[in-house]
């Protein structure tokens, strides 16, 4: 009886949006369910040595939408994220089976240029990791790697990237100062600018706000909302309310398996699986 009362109003429209099981409110946003598929994984298994970290993940990730990966620690969501730009390649003993297709190309194919793949699939890490260089040199790092030496072109790219990541106004007068002097939140947005400068189509974010204060977190979330118009975003988060706020689709991982994957609206108001509901409502995990 009590639970029934608690759940009253779940899925109902309020004047702010749709109420969710996690307690927050889902903001109404334009429909992206008909967007084409950007990333497709089929029967994806991943091993660290003998340990099977991912089991038969089959998922379709839509273009120009935000997909959130949720689940308890060690469930494989970060591992899954890193298979999408082959960052797992750098871990000794890591091995995958199955396929990951991006724009119809198997990214684990023999003829794939991993460096080119990582330009197309950018990544933002949990702990902001700017280089101990100037703000300008941080953003210009990628373009310079890829052969751009013209100063005017670089300046233009740096400005554009900093504007797109909503940090331009805060740093435009001190591009030559060290990036290490920025606040944590600013550093994280600088890292996003650094990713944007190499011209990616997909941005992977591994708990990008978990080390930040609430105000900086809000700025990152607002930024994700902006970027969603032009980029396909996959974000790992431990924060249920954040997943509900920023994402169009949500995937719930548990023990290396994809338990449920669907529209965030559905997952957060009316999940099909009992485990998903338990996790979202905080009864488990």
């Amino acid at each position: 009886m009590l639970i029934a009362e608690e759940n009253q109003g779940i899925g109902e429209k309020t004047n702010m949006g749709t109420r969710t099981l996690a307690g927050g409110v889902l903001s109404d946003r334009e429909d992206v369910t008909r967007n084409p598929i950007k990333i497709f994984t089929r029967e994806l298994d991943m091993y660290y040595g003998a340990v099977r970290a991912l089991q038969g993940i089959t998922a379709e990730i839509k273009e120009r939408a935000v997909t959130a990966l949720i689940g308890p620690s060690g469930c494989g969501k970060s591992t899954f994220l890193r298979t999408l730009n082959r960052m797992n390649d750098t871990i000794p003993g890591a091995r995958i089976e199955g396929t990951v297709m991006i724009d119809g190309v198997n990214i684990y194919g023999a003829d794939v240029n991993v460096a080119a793949l990582r330009r197309m699939v950018g990544m933002v890490f949990q702990k902001q990791n700017p280089f101990p260089k100037s703000i300008f040199d941080n953003v210009a790092y990628g373009p310079r790697l890829h052969g751009i030496t013209d100063k005017a072109v670089l300046e233009h790219m740096v400005e554009e990237s900093l504007k797109k990541s909503a940090i331009w106004d805060e740093v435009k007068d001190r591009l030559d100062t060290s990036a290490m002097q920025l606040s944590g939140g600013q550093q994280q947005r600088l890292c996003i600018a650094r990713v944007l400068a190499v011209g990616p189509e997909i941005i992977l974010m591994d708990e990008p706000a978990s080390a930040l204060d609430p105000l900086s977190t809000a700025k990152i979330e607002e930024l994700i909302h902006q970027l969603r118009k032009n980029y396909t975003i996959v974000i790992v988060t431990h924060n249920m309310q954040q997943a509900a706020r920023v994402s169009d689709f949500t995937a719930y991982f548990y023990m290396g398996s994809l338990v449920e994957f669907g529209e965030t609206k559905t997952i957060f108001t009316n999940p099909t699986k009992k485990e998903t509901e338990d996790y979202i409502t905080g009864r488990f995990g």
Binding site: G122, N129, C191
Partner: peptide, 8 residues
Amino acid sequence: SASLALGA
């Protein structure tokens, strides 16, 4: 990681 993820 940051550098590798930028396509270096």
